[in-house]
Design a binder for these strands. Structure first.
Lengths: 340, 340
DNA sequence: GTTAACCACGCAAGCGTTTGCGTAATTGGC
DNA sequence: GCCAATTACGCAAACGCTTGCGTGGTTAAC
């Protein structure tokens, strides 16, 4: 047999040999099993300490068919919103003795599929995922379902039946945002929304429409424009809004980055921020308060807490507290925060 | 024997039984081994596809004593600098078929030690770590060294001999920064530095002193103050600098967050930014350009590229291209970027 | 004194995969 | 037609650990 490179790490076999007892006794002694004599336990535990013994987790993972690992797949790790979420996920996973495998899709569907594949091969116990902007096909998640690997979707959740999900109630947050603008006297409010297929976009639009309804105002579809979240797309959207006959005096933007791009565009058009035009956004950067022209208000989405909630839901499934097919959608409340 | 919950995943044993051949043949067929007949190969591969066979990585990890996993330990996942770095690390790990285990220390030494322990138990092939602000004891890294688990330190590197490390040449960047201020006519330049024991702090101080030396100016130790990077600490540091007899007209701050805190303090003292006082900082947030009072210039540290470089160095060690005891310090050039 | 209970430990299987070696059967060279 | 090389596969061990079951030996109960 090929002599595998021994990492030098002592094994229970080693301990057993040195103490002239069987490996099973060593194993049980280390687990404080009741059927092992106190003397033996002590001897084993002392020798283990001396040798610096450490259980080989890979062996246990393999033997138990469980890895105490969760895969987390996000579109972009460097975005503030997601990195806060990761922080929340890692914190609660850590305190439950789980570790975190990481992958970023860069909004690329093929890469998303590959990472899910890799997670599956790594036999993760479960996944937390926020899908990419361009993902249209959900076969990879169907695979996970068949493999009985639980998935909790989070923030960017796909439009699928029977899923576990944690997200923010953007509809109500949007209602608050539009309410705020209406109360400040704005009557022609534009919205730069995200890609149409995202639930997040649908919710924003729904909130917008509901807020108008509450105030018995009629809704003009021209005022909501779906953009692609790039600077160019935002500029195009702004151009569209500013060309309309009714003068747009306020804009709700999909997120802070879009807001900042929109502000740039408005400034180029010689518009005065907060006078000619007011912006309200959805918070996803911690430094927006330091920004030159911050949005007048923004809808806080609590990414850290969302990450915690998603992880807790996943852990509940893994513990058996929550049944795998008891699909839950945890919807957290968003909150409008004024900056002026 | 206890019947382990079969995940329903097909194994090579399954395939072997169905085809009436041995598992070794199946294994070799799936690896395209030359000693397997074409017909057999085809039959195996087809059945594997039909059954949706997927190798059990945990078994392979265990058997090979290698996990194709690297642990990455950072102080704070939600900080822009680190999340960019993660992005770089994940990208290059991914394209080399490695996956990433994540941990954040929150600058807590005990937690840092626990995470390293967990990484070790998970039998990661190597680690990339940026140490916490408060870490004084390096026993956990000594453990890794003894276990022959390679570690590449990155950005916040400990003051230890014989380590692999990737960092930015903050000294030269600082020279550029101070040069820039001197050329703009500033003669009394303060520096809000980080905790003394950090190499990053020492480099900044050294650069500051070297720049003054280049211009034949004498160095006043009062002008460099070590702070703890909190808002309160920064305020105290600013207070100290502004109380000095010689009027400080420019300040080099440890990072953008410190800069923003310092700006806040200066504003409270009714100072006019970029007139009464000018700030230069070290870039670690992508949105500093949107900030109301951005630093006049900042030293870019290229976190994404640093992450890539650290990962590449680690992979070189794992591949055997670079010897484990051939300690390398890769120092990347920082670059002063003007914002005005 | 017999039975039952319990204590302390060993045996061995099994998790899924890889791989060195052994061994038939086939082929080719002369 | 004989030996060697090649082809095509099987055997079994090994990775480290857990755990159901078996087995002596001691103690307690009636």
């Amino acid at each position: 047999m090929r002599k595998v490179v021994s990492s030098g790490q002592p094994t229970i076999k080693e301990i057993a040999k040195r103490l002239n007892i069987s490996v099973s006794t060593v194993s049980r002694a280390l687990h404080d099993h009741h059927s092992i004599g106190l003397r033996t336990k002590a001897r084993v535990q002392q020798l283990a300490a001396e040798l610096g013994y450490e259980r080989n987790q890979t062996a246990i993972f393999f033997q138990q068919g469980k890895t105490f690992t969760i895969g987390i797949l996000l579109p972009e790790l460097s975005e503030a919103f997601f990195s806060s979420a990761i922080s929340g996920i890692e914190d609660t996973a850590y305190s439950n003795n789980y570790t975190v495998l990481l992958g970023q899709s860069h909004d690329d569907e093929a890469r998303e599929k590959q990472i899910i594949q890799s997670f599956k091969q790594h036999r993760v116990d479960g996944c937390i995922v926020s899908i990419g902007k361009n993902t249209r096909n959900y076969d990879h998640f169907e695979m996970l379902r068949q493999a009985k690997i639980p998935v909790v979707f989070f923030d960017r959740i796909p439009d699928l039946p029977n899923i576990h999900a944690v997200s923010c109630n953007l509809e109500s947050g949007t209602v608050q945002a539009v309410d705020f603008l209406l109360k400040k006297g704005h009557r022609c409010i534009g919205m730069i929304n995200g890609p149409e297929q995202l639930v997040a976009s649908k919710e924003r639009a729904a909130g917008y429409i509901r807020a108008l309804g509450k105030h018995r105002l009629k809704y003009d579809p021209e005022l909501i424009v779906n953009a692609d979240l790039t600077a160019a797309g935002t500029a195009a959207a702004m151009q569209h809004l500013l060309k309309l006959k009714r003068k747009v005096t306020a804009v709700v933007t999909f997120n802070d980055y879009v807001a900042m791009d929109a502000v740039q565009y408005a400034l180029k058009q010689k518009l005065e921020i907060n006078k000619d035009i007011t912006f309200v956004s959805y918070a996803n950067t911690p430094v927006s308060s330091y920004t030159a022209f911050p949005p007048a208000a923004s809808v806080e989405q609590f990414p850290y807490e969302q990450g915690q909630a998603a992880t807790n839901m996943l852990l509940d499934i893994l513990n058996g507290t929550l049944a795998l097919n008891d699909y839950q959608q945890r919807i957290m409340e968003s909150q409008l925060v004024l900056h002026t």
